[in-house]
């Protein structure tokens, strides 16, 4: 495949403070390649707001606004309103938040913006914990995942929150999962979402070698394995009603996804079996959701 950058000037400048192999940086780089220079990024506290650079320097060549942790969606909505009243309806306002800033502290503002159908593009880059503060559990952390606040002596028992379902419940025009392990799919979805009016949401899976305890060179591969094992399947929801699966490689066992990651190292074989059962069940539910809509049509 031949990827040609879509923009003339480089929007992503090297020299940032991201960990080697950081999935989140790859995620924004690939997103901006599609969105281009007519984009304003609103980013709350999280890995990105720290790695972007030390003031007064930055690694992005689009306007970026660092905002308070809980305010990604609300500030983005305000930026959009401010642009709109000045006659600018073309600039994409991208709210770029981590899982902490989306699933937890930013949840209310996100729900508010989506309910109002504010014309913003919200992407949650999900590394499944509060990584910037040193790997603490969020509601996006998978069950059994080690973090400093769910250590081996007290691993997380709650399942990962399904944020796309929540978005769908708001009747959002477009919600989808995407992953750095499927870059063509990501590009497609970002391009599609860019052209839609109203709130668009992408849940973007981004590996974290530091927090997940895997070798940095496997960052993309781990995300790929998540798709293949259906731990993180690729799908879209249109208007909160039409669920459709995206093409994925053949399903593999979760084993291959779990084994390279140190955060799962204390998972027993029984634990892996339970994990597998849960993934299988969720996958069946998702499939039936996608099929039942087809049946109605």
């Amino acid at each position: 495949m031949n990827e040609q950058p879509q923009t003339e000037r480089e929007l992503f400048i090297p020299g940032h403070y991201g960990c080697p192999g950081c999935g989140a940086t790859l995620a924004l780089k690939q997103t901006l390649e599609v969105l281009g220079e007519d984009t304003i990024v609103v980013m709350p506290a999280g890995c990105w707001s720290t790695l972007i650079g030390i003031y007064p320097y930055t690694c992005l060549d689009v306007p970026v606004m660092s905002v308070a942790f809980a305010t990604a969606a609300s500030t983005a909505a305000g930026v959009k309103a401010g642009l709109s009243i000045q006659g600018n309806e073309h600039t994409t306002v991208l709210a770029w938040a981590g899982d902490g800033g989306t699933f937890d502290i930013g949840f209310q503002a996100l729900s508010g913006a989506v309910e109002r159908n504010d014309d913003i593009f919200y992407i949650c880059y999900d590394n499944e914990a509060y990584m910037n503060t040193g790997i603490q559990r969020s509601s996006a952390t998978p069950a059994g995942g080690w973090t400093t606040t769910t250590p081996d002596s007290a691993l997380k028992i709650q399942k990962k929150k399904n944020i796309v379902e929540v978005m769908a419940a708001h009747r959002i025009p477009y919600a989808a999962t995407a992953s750095i392990g499927a870059p063509e799919d990501l590009r497609c979805k970002v391009q599609k979402a860019k052209g839609i009016q109203g709130t668009r949401f992408i849940h973007l899976f981004a590996s974290c070698p530091t927090g997940w305890r895997h070798v940095p060179e496997l960052s993309v591969e781990i995300s790929r394995l998540a798709i293949q094992s259906r731990v993180f399947p690729l799908y879209e929801v249109i208007d909160g009603e039409r669920w459709q699966l995206n093409p994925m490689p053949d399903k593999i066992d979760v084993d291959r996804y779990i084994k390279p990651q140190g955060r799962f190292k204390s998972m027993t074989p029984e634990g892996i079996q339970r994990f597998q059962k849960q993934v299988d069940w969720d996958w069946r539910v998702l499939q039936s959701r996608c099929q039942s809509i087809e049946k109605e049509n």
């Binding site: 940032h16 080697p20 650079g53 930055t58």
Partner: peptide, 26 residues
């Protein structure tokens, strides 16, 4: 930034991070 007059009134950046030699990390 060597003097106050160079500081923008609002905290907006003035340059890129390209000077940061992250190659030293590897």
């Amino acid at each position: 930034v060597l003097s106050l007059s160079q500081l923008p009134t609002s905290p907006f950046t003035i340059d890129s991070m390209a000077w940061n030699q992250t190659g030293d990390w590897r």
